[in-house]
Amino acid sequence: MKEQSLPNIFGYSSTRHQTPQQPDQALLYRIHIAEAKLGVSRSTIYRLVNEGELVLIKIGKRSSGITAASLHALIERNKALAS
């Protein structure tokens, strides 16, 4: 039987290869992925979290992620401001 790999909350498959299946299926983005998607620095990500613009979810003691919904909402709000 063929093993089916399902993406975890970060959009990565549960197999050995850690490549995103489809980025839009992720529920959370790791900080470095959120930085790349927005084109901003790590400190800007944390500033946006402190301002309530992004939602940070703690997963463990040293692991956290930005919700995909809050990241996409920020992008949409900024699109509306630009037009």
Rank of each mutant, 00 (worst) to 15 (best):
M1N: 11
K2S: 06
Q4T: 12
Q4C: 06
Q4N: 09
L6P: 01
L6Y: 07
L6F: 12
L6N: 06
P7F: 03
N8P: 05
I9A: 08
F10G: 01
F10Q: 00
F10W: 09
S13R: 06
S13A: 03
S14W: 01
S14P: 01
T15D: 14
T15R: 09
T15S: 11
T15F: 04
R16H: 11
R16I: 11
R16T: 13
H17T: 03
H17R: 07
Q18I: 07
P20Y: 12
P20H: 12
D24T: 14
D24R: 11
Q25C: 02
A26E: 01
L27C: 07
L27N: 06
R30G: 08
R30L: 05
I31D: 01
H32T: 12
H32N: 10
H32V: 09
I33Q: 15
A34Y: 08
E35V: 03
E35L: 05
A36P: 01
G39A: 04
V40Y: 00
S41E: 12
S43M: 06
R47W: 00
L48Y: 15
L48V: 07
L48H: 15
L48E: 07
E51R: 02
G52S: 12
E53N: 08
E53W: 03
L54E: 06
L56Y: 08
I57D: 00
I57T: 15
I57R: 10
K58F: 04
K61D: 05
K61N: 12
G65N: 04
I66S: 11
I66K: 13
I66V: 14
I66F: 05
A68D: 10
A69W: 04
S70F: 02
H72E: 14
H72V: 07
A73K: 12
A73C: 12
A73W: 02
A73M: 12
L74A: 06
L74S: 11
R77P: 00
R77I: 01
R77K: 15
N78W: 06
K79T: 13
A80S: 08
A82M: 11
A82F: 08
